[in-house]
Design a protein around this nucleic acid. Structure first.
Lengths: 143, 143
DNA sequence: GCTTGCTTTAAAGTACACTTTAAGGTTTAG
DNA sequence: CTAAACCTTAAAGTGTACTTTAAAGCAAGC
């Protein structure tokens, strides 16, 4: 049960070129080839790559993933180091979670203000930009 | 009550160069200058920039922020367009939230496996990499 | 046998957001 | 008067992750 790069690409929702790029970077090790040199992926590889893209999408750098792969290849003795990396990454994930929460708050705030303006409950724009514009206009008049 | 770029930089936790870069990109409009041409920021500008960095940190592109600023400068008539942009961005924020949740899950999974290995409850590495390695070794033997 | 569509590689190009450099002007402390 | 510590601009450089291009090989269908 092996997949060509095209099948792997479809299953992963990831361009074939990107998969090759990842292999070149050393992320998925031990990818087999058929007698023509074409890559053959099996489920384990797909799972592994999916994990990597999951980490990538949330900010882990490829170089760090490569480092983890290398540590893993060196055996169980490197588990403490890998744990340290993952724990640091986990901190980063928490940081991003609160950034997202903050941004969602800000967006909802903005949207609420827009609603208020549309319903005529607020004189105009959210204060900020207008005020800056006012100051700008004043300074123009003074020239 | 105005701040120099250095003070703004300190308050925002953002390099002065980056603030200048943002201004060049058109993000914070109407920044005043003193008689020597030095920028003068007031609280509204800092608030605005802080909002922009909050949006940036969570994936909004500078070009899109500039677009929003331009729309805002065109008056309340553009509110529907701005709402559309923010709602799209909100979708993106939700997408990122679930990506983060997924990644956190995966990390905790990995960490749990490492714990198990360290306590001798699992024979070795998380199966994945070893299995790939085994296959690799087999293919080497066959050569 | 030839086209179509896949595959391979290495290398160059792109997008994005900074970041650094270079060259110079002003203000303040000693 | 001069050095330190700011400020200015424009332009070039950097890092990251792709993405595209170019050149070529294999294989199934007509």
């Amino acid at each position: 049960m092996s997949y060509t790069i095209k099948e792997a690409s479809e299953r992963l929702g990831c361009p074939a070129h990107t998969i090759r790029f990842y292999e070149k970077e050393g992320l998925p090790p031990y990818i087999k080839r058929d007698r023509h040199g074409n890559r053959l992926f099996d489920q384990d590889h797909l799972d592994w790559i999916r994990l990597m893209t999951c980490f990538r999408a949330t900010g882990m750098k490829i170089s760090l993933m490569k480092q983890m792969v290398n540590l893993a290849l060196d055996g169980d003795a490197t588990i403490p180091q890998r744990k340290a990396i993952l724990n640091q990454y986990k901190e980063e994930l928490y940081r991003r979670q609160s950034q997202l929460a903050e941004a969602l708050d800000a967006v909802n705030n903005k949207l609420a203000i827009y609603e208020d303006i549309e319903r005529g409950r607020l004189p105009s724009e959210s204060r900020l930009l207008n005020q800056m514009e006012d100051q700008h206009n004043q300074s123009i008049k003074q020239e």
